[in-house]
């Protein structure tokens, strides 16, 4: 009996691999989109970065 290169089983395996691949890619895209939205909603996030940063300091009282 000649060996068939493509068995029905290979189709099922491919469906599994492609399915998982698409699901993972979709998940990555979704988390990326979520990150972009979250960062945009919160606004610029700055903290102490070893040197004082004017934009991260509390607003100063105007000098009298």
């Amino acid at each position: 009996m000649a060996l068939r290169a493509e068995h029905e089983i290979h189709k099922r395996r491919r469906s599994r691999n492609v399915g998982v691949g698409i699901a993972l890619a979709g998940f990555v895209a979704l988390v990326f989109a979520l990150s972009v939205v979250k960062i945009n909603t919160v606004g610029p996030v700055e903290g102490f970065d070893h040197t004082p940063r004017a934009s991260a300091l509390p607003p100063q009282e105007p000098a009298e």
Binding site: H7, I9, K11, R12, R13, S15, R16, V18, G19, V20
Partner: peptide, 13 residues
């Protein structure tokens, strides 16, 4: 055994 191997749809189900 192979005949029972799952496709993606089976995991979805």
């Amino acid at each position: 055994d192979f005949d029972r191997e799952a496709g993606f749809g089976d995991y979805f189900a």
